[in-house]
Design a binder for these strands. Structure first.
Lengths: 197, 197
DNA sequence: GACGTTTTTCATCATGTGTTGAATTGTGCG
DNA sequence: CGCACAATTCAACACATGATGAAAAACGTC
């Protein structure tokens, strides 16, 4: 306790730990969890594989560290839901794209998405992610029959994520966010509050 | 040529080869290419791993064998495009769901989709699958600006595939096909021929 | 019954992986 | 300087996987 000041070596001038984490993020985002190897991450960071284990423990630990995202979904969505259902489709999309297009956040989100889609984590996203995280937020925007409308909204948003970020279809990946808001916003609005046959 | 009739042993009464192929299909569909192991496929078929190699060669060969699908996309889509743009959204969706809901075809398609999404085959679907296979078909249904409309259609259909088959959100997975046609058909129609802001 | 062919298995190799623990280097503090 | 501690690397283990080639088992044909 008594001013147990640090002795010994200080963190290296180039923050190696951060470089390893960044390499892990992009690798997880591009190749998924199984496709990413500790050795390849270490190589990308110009470092020995054992160092990766030294900083982050097991591979799973490294994965959750790579997923750490400086964004609170509820905080982002608060203004969207606060403004009521009118025009919610476009605001929802704008907020969503704002987060995903942020270069600081995108690698982590991509890693999350890639693994949720690829590595047999169907149950994860089906039983936890959608119902617990995004479900309650969308529920406040929906006109009625949320059990029907929310999956429809999810389907269009997931399609957007896959085509724009995961697969990166040129027309989707390079389109300005506002173009997508204009084209897909009405569809989301329809799913949220429109007539549902 | 001269009635070189088969001598030796005949194919086993329970068609082992077919069982191995079926096991491979479901495994590739549930766990993707990387997640599937030759040993697990052999175990699921109650068979020695070497037998898998004996029938289908390498793991890649097994994969393409598992993808063999008794469906010609152009044949399925022909009536859809033949009837013209009116109501094409609903017809497109109906034909699509008809194929995917066929239990004979679904495992192979799932394996294909899972791997296209998961195993870093972005370039594959981006540069080959969409432009070559589905692009030309959709191009015949589109009002104008195909480079904008086709990706939008793709995004909604991919969202449907992911939520209904890959992730299997209950509301999407258990919905009767006609319900989905009624709810999402108009959206596809809008992407195909509607006003695009 | 004996041969030939196919099916099926056994034993094995080479490789890549996650992980670990000891050893080495480097830097600041007394 | 020399000590303490952190950063970093080396060497190696245990394990799973894809793949191979030879042997054994099953079955129809002559």
């Amino acid at each position: 306790m008594t001013a147990r000041a640090s002795r010994g070596r200080r963190p290296g001038a180039p923050d190696t730990r951060a470089e390893v984490l960044a390499a892990a993020r992009t690798s997880f985002g591009e190749l998924g969890f199984r496709g990413t190897t500790i050795r390849s991450v270490a190589a990308a960071a110009g470092v020995d594989p054992a160092l990766v284990h030294h900083y982050f423990g097991t591979k799973d630990d490294l994965f959750v560290a790579a997923l750490e995202i400086p964004v609170d979904p509820r905080e982002v969505m608060a203004p969207v839901v606060a403004a009521g259902p009118d025009g919610a489709g476009e605001r929802l999309l704008r907020a969503f794209l704002g987060v995903w297009d942020d270069p600081d956040v995108q690698p982590g989100l991509l890693a999350l998405a890639r693994s949720l889609l690829g590595d047999d984590s169907g149950p994860m996203v089906r039983d936890a992610f959608i119902p617990v995280v995004v479900g309650p937020v969308l529920a406040q925007l929906v006109a009625d029959r949320p059990e029907v409308r929310i999956p429809l909204v999810a389907s269009q948003i997931i399609g957007l994520v896959v085509t724009r970020y995961v697969i990166a279809l040129p027309a989707m990946a390079h389109a300005p966010a506002e173009d997508l808001v204009a084209r897909m916003g009405p569809v989301l609005q329809h799913y949220l509050t429109g007539d549902l046959a």
